[in-house]
Amino acid sequence: MSVADAQATVTIVPASTAPLVSRDSASSYWLIAPAVIFMSLFLVIPILMIVYVSFWTQTTFKIEAKLTLDSWQTFFASDTYITSLFTTVRIWLIVLVTTFVVGYPTALFVGLFVRNKTLQTALLVMCVIPFWTSFLIRVLAWRPMLGKEGAINIILQGLGIIQQPIEALLFTELSVIIGMTQIYVVFMVGPIAFMLGRIDPSLIEAARDLGADFWRILRKIIFPLSLPGVVVGAIFVSVMVLGEFATSAALSGRKVNLLGNIIVTQVGSLKWALASVVGVILTVIMGLVVAGLLRIVDLKKEL
């Protein structure tokens, strides 16, 4: 509503009722005010601060509020940083695909094939249970799994599938992807299973009666109906993977440097301006990804 419209409304409404109506929403304003103030102070201002500081002048020991593009030039001139930008995008895309590929069949089973509500809930709870263990411990738990003398190598050797332990499992990009997939796949399974659970079984029966085979039904009916769930899951996974630094720190042996890791190192050496540049770039990528995903489906309509 434009200002002119608002003024017009005010003049139409009889003067006597104005106090009652405004008192009505006044209580809402008082209730919401603390939250708005809190989020403005501790979320909006810090993010604006990142943008502002990215243009500050950084010297080895201190930082000054003199505006410059130096830190931006440093970032785009450095192979290390550009590589890390591409690594971040690559790992994000790969993890997005792996969580979808690994998670979708599970969601299909839980949401569509299990029609018993109790069993369905039990399976979903089993997927969520690992979340009550510290995130960092869950990441660390992959080390004895993937290592040269780890469980996977021991089992594969015991079964006689391999003779020499696979060393590529730990402290590589692969270990980071495996770790992230395990940690974030549940965020894909949940929303998809939720959407699949809402499909009317008679719809699939009808398609089957018309002679459609399962793959056709999956492509033409099941997948389109589950798409909002896929998008919600993809937003969850994207937001978390793009801001990641712990999994790569724990499982890559410093070989994989994501943008998040760059921020951590730069802050560690008090290079605030460069850390801010990386922060702004990360924010922009995040905004593009979320906006792009939201264009695929109209979530307000679907949920």
């Binding site: 810090p46 993010i47 990142i50 937001v239 801001g243 998040g260 922060g279 990360l282 924010t283 995040m286």
Partner: peptide, 11 residues
């Protein structure tokens, strides 16, 4: 939605 690193950095 905003990643923790960014909120931490900004703060």
């Amino acid at each position: 939605i905003v990643p923790g690193v960014l909120v931490g950095l900004g703060t």
